[in-house]
């Protein structure tokens, strides 16, 4: 994969093409493994594929799926964001404050939560792009800061959204009145489609991959990589804000202690979905599949009454297998 710097635009297109071809074969493999896994649980426990349980799995995918979508964009650039879990919590706590203390109307409250998330992301992006902080350190600091601020702002107590009666319905209401079909699932679906469009049809997705595969070449070919990086980290924060909305709506409260550990699960979803942590390649479909695999696996293990701590160990093993096969595939190519 040697690249010369005199034809940067062609290089970006080449990279886009090879990665999209590679993605397709990879998605098929991941999908195949996913179907096998579903069959395995279905044979052991036929209830696994009941309508109710499928909806439970999809609902459980929502928060992690949204976080994983955001993190994926950062991973495409070769960076990492380990603050998404606590940024999610912080944005939901701030929404709660906006509703209860400032008395803002519900749409503004929701918008404010998104803005808080995007702002945290922008700060991460600024640190990475303009202050040359390694992404791990910049987002680790953001993790500590938002973890602390959530607790300070809330006074270490959950903030309830009882002042806004329809708030709980945003996530747990039934879409078009179909029983079991939660709004949150529709929201995840819509946002996943939007993320797919952003990734494959807009310049942000293309530049994210270009930055991930060769940042210097991208910068030399006239792309303002710094600004795009800030935009991409903000996008990641915005997705954390979406996740915060779903999370707080499901619980009808913002829980300031939540958040730690979510970032690792989101990164795991992105990696199981076949995205390389080195950046430069990946797909949104893969990320959604990765998130689905994690929640389906966790659900299946729970139905078979495997203890929680052992569940995370098994998810860990699946993650290891995913990375192992990914490595082997790359070596074969």
């Amino acid at each position: 994969m040697t690249r010369t710097s005199d034809k940067p635009s062609k290089k970006i297109n080449d990279n886009k093409m090879t990665s999209s071809i590679r993605d397709r074969s990879q998605i098929v493999i991941i999908l195949g493994i996913y179907i096998l896994m579903i069959l395995f649980f279905f044979i052991l426990k036929p209830n696994y594929l009941s309508y109710d349980n499928i909806m439970t799995i999809l609902l459980a995918t929502c928060v992690n799926g949204l976080l994983a979508l955001g993190v994926s964009f950062v991973i495409f650039t070769g960076g990492i964001d380990i603050s998404v879990g606590t940024v999610m919590t912080f944005s939901s706590v701030m929404s709660g404050i906006a509703l209860n203390n400032w008395g803002l109307p519900l749409p503004l409250v929701i918008l404010f939560g998104f803005l808080v998330g995007a702002f945290c992301g922008a700060v991460n992006g600024f640190g990475v792009a303009k202050m040359y902080l390694p992404p791990f350190i910049a987002t680790m600091a953001m993790q500590m800061i938002t973890k602390g601020l959530s607790l300070v702002v809330s006074g270490i107590k959950p903030i309830y959204f009882t002042a806004a009666p329809g708030y709980q319905n945003i996530a747990t209401g039934y879409f078009l009145g179909i029983p079991g079909f939660y709004n949150a699932i529709v929201i995840l679906l819509v946002i996943a489609v939007i993320a797919y469009i952003i990734f494959s049809k807009t310049i942000i997705g293309r530049f994210a991959l270009a930055i991930g595969s060769n940042e210097e070449a991208t910068r030399l070919s006239g792309v303002k990589t710094d600004n795009w990086k800030i935009a991409i980290y903000s996008l990641c924060g915005l997705f954390a804000g979406f996740a915060g909305l779903i999370m707080s709506s499901r619980l009808n409260s913002a829980q300031p202690q939540l958040g730690a550990g979510y970032e690792l699960e989101a990164i795991a979803a992105a990696v199981i979905g076949g995205n390389s942590l080195n950046g430069g390649e990946g797909s949104i479909t893969g990320t959604i599949l990765g998130a689905l695999i994690i929640s389906s696996l966790t659900n299946g293990l729970r139905i078979m009454s495997v203890p929680t701590e052992l569940q995370s160990a098994i998810v860990g093993l699946v993650l290891a297998l995913a990375v192992y096969f990914d490595k082997r595939r790359r070596i074969n190519e």
Binding site: I267, E309, A320, V323
Partner: peptide, 30 residues
């Protein structure tokens, strides 16, 4: 896992972390 398996150390040790945590829990019941 990291050096010979060529997994990214972030992921490899994350996996090991989860697995050990599982063992700790099984051993002690929490």
């Amino acid at each position: 896992l990291t050096v010979i398996g060529k997994m990214p150390s972030f992921i490899a040790t994350l996996v090991v972390m989860n697995i050990i945590r599982g063992f700790n829990f099984i051993y002690s019941g929490g």
